[in-house]
Structure formats: C-alpha cells, structure tokens
Deep mutational scan, measured.
Amino acid sequence: EFSMMFKHFDKDKSGRLNHQEFKSCLRSLGYDLPMVEEGEPDPEFEAILDTVDPNRDGHVSLQEYMAFMISRE
C-alpha cells in the first residue's frame, strides 16, 4: 500500500519524492500538516524531514519513505 502511494505521488517517476510531493503524500495519508506559504517556516514538516531525509538532499527515496512509514505504524 505504501509503495503504491509513493508511486502515485512520484509525478516525474524519478524513484524519489521531492519535499512538496512528500508533503502531499503525507496529507493524503491523513497527516494534519498546516498550510504554509512558499518559503515560510514549517516546523512540523521540518521535524518529519529530520527523520525521513536526514541528509537533506531534497528528496525522499522509496527506501527512506518506507522506513518512515513502518516506524509510524
């Protein structure tokens, strides 16, 4: 189920989600993330990124995504 969600939000089929795609994916899974303006701080989402994209390369791989989802179950 999680990998299907990942593929759905991987719009460019790159095998990874940019942070915006990842945020959309989390919202569709029921995460209550506040709407913030582009460039505004988003501490809740930043905290999630610290876990799922610790190297802050700007992308979430399928492996990082799956590890995050399994840790939340």
Rank of each mutant, 00 (worst) to 15 (best):
A67P: 03
T51L: 13
P34N: 10
M35S: 15
R56A: 05
H59G: 08
R56H: 06
F6I: 11
M4L: 14
D10R: 05
P43L: 10
R16M: 10
F45T: 03
R56Q: 04
P34E: 11
E38P: 14
Y65W: 06
Y31K: 05
R72P: 06
Y65I: 05
D57V: 15
D53A: 02
P54L: 05
S28M: 10
G58L: 00
M69W: 07
D57H: 14
Y31M: 13
F6S: 08
N18D: 15
T51N: 13
C25A: 10
L49E: 00
A67E: 13
R72V: 06
L49K: 01
P54M: 05
P41S: 14
Q63V: 07
L33V: 08
L17E: 00
F68C: 03
T51W: 10
F45Y: 07
H59S: 12
E46A: 08
Y65V: 07
M35H: 15
V52E: 00
D50Y: 00
V60E: 00
V36K: 14
P54K: 13
L26T: 01
V36R: 12
K13S: 15
N18F: 02
L17S: 02
H59P: 01
E46S: 08
V36L: 13
R72Q: 15
D12Q: 09
V60T: 01
D32W: 09
G15W: 02
E40G: 11
P41W: 10
V52R: 00
A47Y: 08
G15R: 04
E46T: 07
D50Q: 06
R72N: 12
D42Q: 09
N18H: 03
A67Q: 12
T51Y: 13
N18I: 03
F2L: 14
E73A: 07
R27K: 12
S71P: 12
L17Y: 00
D50M: 03
E46F: 01
E40N: 12
D32F: 10
Q63F: 05
Y65C: 09
F68Y: 14
F68P: 02
D42M: 03
P43E: 10
G39L: 07
R27A: 11
D50F: 00
M35G: 12
V52F: 02
L26A: 01
